[in-house]
Amino acid sequence: MSSVDTAPTAPTATGANGDWRPRIVRPAEVGVAASPEGLQEFLGGTDIGRLLVEDRAVVFRGFGVSTGTYDGVADLLLPDRLAYVHGNSPRTKVGRNLYTSTEYPAEFEISMHNEMSYAHAWPSRILFFCDVAAATGGATPVVDGRLWFESIDPEVRAAFAPGVRYTQNLHDGVGFGKSWQATFETDDRAAVEAFLDGAEAEWSWQPDGTLRVTQLRRATLEHPVTGTEVWFNQADQWHVAGLGEDAAALAEIVPEEELPQNAFFADGSPIPAEYIRHVQEVGMRKAVNVDWEVGDLLFVDNVSVAHGRRAFTGQRRILVAMS
């Protein structure tokens, strides 16, 4: 594992044990107005790529960003917003490649993950925006991917070293999980087939119209700039053991090969449930919370940093875009 890393040009907050935390940027600290225009002024004079490599995650707070002024700021941080094609989380598209962060029930936590790390290509940048803060809870926990990797038991890391095999069964409009139409944002089979071929995935159409997809992906990744090795997979979010009681109940009535999604070791052998629970527990324990204020933006290096969600009460609306 490479030891190359880059020290930040500005102080990055740390916890009591010296762990990394996201940097918080406020108007007074960078000498601009407390407005969306002030944030645009700051971003216009900043090497954003370097900022993200050095700080890994940045919260822009106190600039009064709203849904009406979001695009002007977001276009500086995400020059080319991506559609959420082949995404597995339930979301609603609300703007120009802008989505609700997730529609997973409020009472459940979402474990740590790098967005679309199961895919052939993934976003390098993610931008979260707080439109409505939860009444209680609802923080977005973030974890340093290197810390997560190094904190996982060596036996578990070794077992995952050859990679992860992901399987999906995407129904044709009726069934458990997401449909293939919603997953790929099209009802054109040929377009889906071309996408999957380009993604080096194995796929087949089932007699009932279900699309079965298998992908072999890496379990860790080296950051393209720093060379730092990080934990980079979503095995725990695809494996039945990581999805709670409802998924376990579903697994009792649906054959394993027909589950909406699942994860295996690279050779197709089953991943022990205790490995899945260990990975999830370590990620959540090492994470630090970003507690939302309305108008906050959280800008994340999607390779260096994984994210999740804490349970909450009340109305919470966090929007997300990727690049």
Results as ranks from 00 to 15, higher is better:
S3H: 13
V4G: 12
W20D: 08
P22T: 00
P27S: 06
A28C: 05
A34F: 03
G38H: 01
Q40R: 14
F42R: 00
F42H: 08
G44W: 01
D47M: 08
L52W: 09
F60T: 00
G62S: 06
G68L: 09
D71Y: 04
L76T: 01
A83S: 12
A83N: 09
N88L: 14
S89I: 06
R91S: 08
T102I: 02
A106M: 04
E107L: 14
E109T: 11
P123Q: 06
D131G: 14
A135Y: 13
A139P: 04
W148C: 10
D153F: 15
P154G: 05
A159I: 00
Y166W: 06
N169A: 13
E185V: 14
D187C: 11
A190Y: 05
A190W: 03
A191Q: 10
E193A: 14
D197A: 15
D197Y: 04
G198Q: 03
P207E: 09
R212G: 14
V213D: 07
T220K: 01
P224C: 10
V230M: 09
Q237N: 11
W238P: 00
W238Q: 05
D246A: 15
D246Q: 14
A247C: 03
A247M: 08
A249T: 02
A251N: 06
A251P: 02
I253S: 07
I253W: 04
E256Y: 11
Q261I: 09
N262R: 04
N262E: 06
A273N: 05
R277M: 12
R277L: 14
H278D: 06
V279M: 15
V279I: 15
Q280Y: 13
R285I: 08
R285E: 15
N289H: 10
V290F: 10
E293T: 10
D301C: 04
V303Y: 05
G308N: 01
F312H: 07
R316P: 00
R316W: 11
A321R: 02
S323F: 08
